[in-house]
């Protein structure tokens, strides 16, 4: 089963929920857990999980190189480039790599076979373990712009397929998604069995929750809400959820101790072990909800 954690708004507690959830359920020996930090622009889960990283593999895209001894400056490559990344001048060709998506169109279009492709690293996927949890995180190289979805796509190829019929062990993959609603978020939550939306009871939290709900509806992913740093204003979120028939799976009140622990990179279940049961409960609620709706 794949559970992703998303939010729309940044800083609502995605990583907190993802980290504490995986730590709480991995105690159970019948689960084989994987954790993917897909916030490749700003990956933070490792701060809390402190994984042993045993492998680092670069992620690269292919970009064109012109062989000027073959090039006739015919301009077909520039015409084929949907991203306008190539300019063919009288006796020079300029390629703007920051616009290149690595689609290979120019190389196919070249009648002289003058364009080869070389790989360029755009980020790295690091993997290792946290106890028996398999840990995978992606990191975008500084200055790269359009490549987060590529890194996320590569990471998701490592997701373990759900258990074979005879095996009693259940694979659970927890995905920590980036904030926002655009392509990196879609790439992260796509194909999840369930998405937990983490929000806070403020107008910002609500506004961005609504956007995130729209994304999940478009992708047809079942969802539930966790209200983080809750308190007297929770109804701003719960009224909306009631109207939209989205279950509220968990409420975490505003708590200074949790905030201080967070600031030091300490998961909340370590300072307040009763939360461990609450996170297990969160998981069971998701499992139940999926069973009722016949999703699994």
């Amino acid at each position: 089963m794949i559970i992703s954690i998303a939010s729309g708004k940044g800083g609502t507690g995605k990583t907190t929920i993802a980290v504490n959830l995986v730590l709480s359920i991995s105690n159970d020996n019948s689960y084989d857990c994987q954790f993917l930090d897909c916030d490749v622009e700003e990956p933070n889960a490792a701060i809390f999980l402190k994984p042993n990283i045993s492998q680092a593999r670069p992620v690269s895209i292919l970009e064109p190189r012109i062989n000027f001894t073959k090039c006739t400056f015919c301009g077909k490559c520039a015409k084929a480039c949907a991203f306008n990344a190539i300019a063919v001048l009288k006796n020079d060709i300029k390629i703007f790599m920051e616009l290149c998506h690595g689609c290979g169109g120019c190389s196919i279009a070249c009648p002289e076979n003058a364009i080869s492709e070389v790989s360029r690293d755009v980020g790295v996927i690091e993997s290792g373990n946290v106890g028996k949890i398999e840990f995978i995180q992606g990191k975008l190289n500084i200055g790269e712009a359009i490549t987060p979805p590529i890194i996320i796509r590569e990471m998701k190829k490592r997701i373990k397929k759900s258990g074979t019929e005879e095996s009693k062990i259940k694979h659970i993959t927890i995905i920590d998604a980036p904030p926002g609603t655009s392509c990196p978020v879609v790439e992260s939550v796509k194909n999840s069995d369930f998405t937990i939306l983490v929000t806070e009871p403020t107008p910002f939290g609500l506004n961005d929750l609504i956007l995130a709900v729209e994304v999940l509806k478009k992708l047809n992913i079942p969802m539930g809400v966790v209200i983080n740093r809750g308190g007297k204003n929770d109804n701003i979120i719960s009224d909306y959820c009631q109207n939209e028939k989205i279950p509220i799976l968990m409420r975490i009140p505003m708590d200074k101790d949790i905030a201080v622990a967070y600031s030091k990179g300490i998961p909340m279940i370590q300072i307040n072990p009763k939360y461990s049961d609450k996170f297990k409960e969160l998981y069971y609620k998701i499992e139940n909800q999926l069973q009722i709706s016949g999703e699994i």
């Binding site: 700003e42 701060i47 987060p148 030091k264």
Partner: peptide, 28 residues
């Protein structure tokens, strides 16, 4: 926007000043 990817780079290039708001947490 948050992050360091394409919308951030588009927001950032050529400005006179970027004010970075951070918080005293390991993540921040």
């Amino acid at each position: 926007p948050p992050g360091i990817g394409c919308p951030v780079i588009s927001s950032l290039t050529g400005v006179d000043l970027a004010l970075i708001v951070t918080e005293p947490t390991f993540s921040g």
